[in-house]
Design a protein around this nucleic acid. Structure first.
Lengths: 150, 150
DNA sequence: ATGCAATCTCAAGCTAAGTTGAGGTCAAGC
DNA sequence: GCTTGACCTCAACTTAGCTTGAGATTGCAT
């Protein structure tokens, strides 16, 4: 016998907000970005599955790890059929996230050691400064490098 | 005898752009933010001092270190009379910047070790997840979710 | 004196990750 | 069946760090 859908299986947006700590507007924003896909009632109101709580929690956690929404979308897209992450998926995804974290830490650490070199020389000379002339690794982040949790 | 100002001591914005690698529009933007203060010709064109090259270079370097323009402004403001940084100033400022770098690295490292804990458990449970519930350091960024998954 | 590149101002646009507000609709309790 | 709170859409605003474009002016070389 297929499990009957009880009323509680369809949550209105406010409930989801209360249970995730997100604001209603943020959830709508995420829907806009394609991160969740609620159904609609006849009256056009959103109805979410319980599993969307988990999906949104994943988004929140990933954000705290310093991933941009677009990166989170990429991670979620790796799941078959936009499924909400299970424990196994989570292990795989975390491994990928860990790589990104590692890279960010390595980047900052390199930068710091270059800075240490510069403190010694005090050169401030563009032609000689390591901080300045290593185009390869430092200048990647585009306008306004964003670091996690300020 | 006071040194006579030769023509080369006043650079038009394009020269400054070529010599720093910044775009003309970015330099104007920085002026707007108060980071440089060029003089004007009778015809209202900007004329920069040679020392502004150094000042802008400092801005570029500090940006690569992950400082926001507002933070850079703060650092530059520590200098008496908006002076361009000398080697000694640079040593002091770098020390301050190094602290900020250290904090960012430490933050990321803590986050990573929490993630490692989570990979093991695969819980994805908001009530238990360390990533999620360390209010002290992680959850500064908004409304704190406190509820368990369904 | 003229031509043309460089410069000027001001306004609008872009990305990220949302928030805020106006004006309108839905659904549930009494 | 009415009221009220939750919900809807759409547009505009926010901060950071710029870029792009329109239309006007300047200044250097010939």
């Amino acid at each position: 016998m297929p499990r009957k859908l009880s009323k509680n299986d369809f949550l209105p947006i406010g409930d989801l907000a209360r249970r995730t700590g997100l604001s209603v507007s943020a959830i709508r924003f995420y829907e806009d970005k394609g991160l969740v896909q609620p159904m609609r009632t006849n009256g056009n109101q959103r109805r979410f599955l319980r599993s969307d709580i988990r999906r949104l929690s994943f988004i929140l956690i990933a954000q705290q790890l310093g991933l941009a929404l677009s990166e989170i979308e990429d991670e979620l897209a790796k799941l078959p059929l936009g499924r909400t992450p299970t424990a196994k998926d989570w292990r795989e995804i975390s491994a990928s996230i860990r790589n990104q974290l590692d890279r960010k830490i390595a980047q900052l650490t390199r930068t710091r050691s270059k800075l240490d070199g510069c403190i010694g020389c005090g050169c401030l000379s563009l032609s000689r400064c390591k901080l300045y002339n290593d185009q390869d690794e430092a200048a990647e982040s585009g306008p306004g490098p964003r670091f996690v949790l300020g």
